[in-house]
Design a binder for these strands. Structure first.
Length: 232
DNA sequence: GGCCAGGTGTAAA
DNA sequence: TTTACACATGGC
C-alpha cells in the first residue's frame, strides 16, 4: 500500500474549506511578507555556523554570538577548529547550549576544512549523509546548510513548518521530518530558489501570525485554515 | 516569572 | 521504536 499523498489526511478539513495547494500558500505568503532574502549571512561558511548556533534558539541570540566571534576575529574555520572549547563557548554563549555547540562547531569546522570548504562539500557524493554523520548536526541543520550555503534543492523542515501545516490540515502534527520533507518535495518543483524563499516565508509567517498562541486576526491564510476558523 | 525560540543526542521504557 | 530528558541564553 502506498503512503497517502498527504501525510495528514486523517482529519480532512470541512468540505467548504478546500485546502490551498503548497504553491498557492507560497504565493499568499509572498504577497503578505514580500521577498525575505535569506539566509541572513555574508558567506556560505557563516550560514553554516549560524545553522548550528540557531538550534532551538532565537535568531537574535545567534546574531549576538556571531558578532562576538566576528569581533574576536574568530569567524573563521581554522581559528574555530583550533580554538579552546571553553573559550569558544564563551564567545558563543548568548546562543544558548553553548557547551554543546562549541563542541559541534569545532567538529564541523574540522570537517569543513578537511573537505575543502563549501565548494568541496558540494562536490561530495552525498554531502547530506556526511553532515549527518557529524555530532551535533541533525536533519534540519544539515538541510539548512545544503539549501542556504550550498544552494542545493532541499526543503528544510522546522518546528514552524510542522505547526503551520498541521494547523492548515495538510499534515499530521506527529509526522516525521522525513515525511514532511517528502511531502513538500513531491508537491513542489525542485527549485532551490523556491525552497529558499518558501522556508523563509514560513518562518516569517510563524513569527508574525502562526505563533504558539496564534494571532489569527490578520492572517493571510485565515480563510483556508480550519484551526483559525474554529479558534477565531 | 513563565513561555518560547529557525534541534540534537542519549537513555530508558 | 517511541518517549523523556538534558542542554542554556535572552526577549517578551
Amino acid at each position: 500500500m502506498s503512503a497517502p499523498d498527504v501525510p495528514g489526511s486523517k482529519e480532512t478539513p470541512a468540505p467548504e474549506l478546500k485546502p490551498l495547494s503548497l504553491s498557492a500558500i507560497h504565493h499568499r505568503l509572498f504577497r503578505a511578507y514580500g521577498p525575505q532574502h535569506w539566509w541572513p549571512a555574508d558567506s556560505p561558511f557563516e550560514v553554516m555556523v549560524g545553522a548550528i548556533l540557531t538550534q532551538n534558539t532565537n535568531w537574535r541570540n545567534v546574531e549576538a554570538a556571531i558578532a562576538s566571534l566576528q569581533a574576536a576575529g574568530m569567524l573563521d574555520g581554522s581559528r574555530i577548529a583550533s580554538c579552546d572549547e571553553a573559550r569558544l563557548g564563551e564567545l558563543i554563549r548568548t546562543s544558548g547550549f553553548f557547551n554543546q555547540k562549541a563542541v559541534s562547531l569545532k567538529a564541523f569546522c574540522r570537517f569543513y576544512l578537511d573537505h575543502g570548504g563549501a565548494a568541496g562539500l558540494k562536490r561530495l557524493d552525498d554531502p547530506r549523509r556526511a553532515l549527518l554523520a557529524l555530532n551535533g548536526i541533525g536533519p534540519e541543520t544539515a538541510d539548512s546548510m545544503l539549501l542556504y550555503a550550498l544552494g542545493m534543492p532541499v526543503f528544510v523542515i522546522d518546528a514552524y513548518t510542522k505547526r503551520i501545516f498541521a494547523r492548515l490540515g495538510l499534515t499530521r502534527p506527529e509526522a516525521s521530518y522525513h515525511q514532511l520533507q517528502e511531502f513538500f518535495e513531491e508537491h513542489l518543483p525542485m527549485d532551490a530558489g523556491l525552497f529558499n524563499e518558501y522556508h523563509a516565508l514560513i518562518v516569517e509567517h510563524a513569527k508574525q501570525h502562526c505563533r504558539v498562541k496564534p494571532l489569527c486576526a490578520e492572517c493571510p491564510l485565515l480563510d483556508r485554515c480550519p484551526t483559525g476558523q474554529t479558534s477565531a
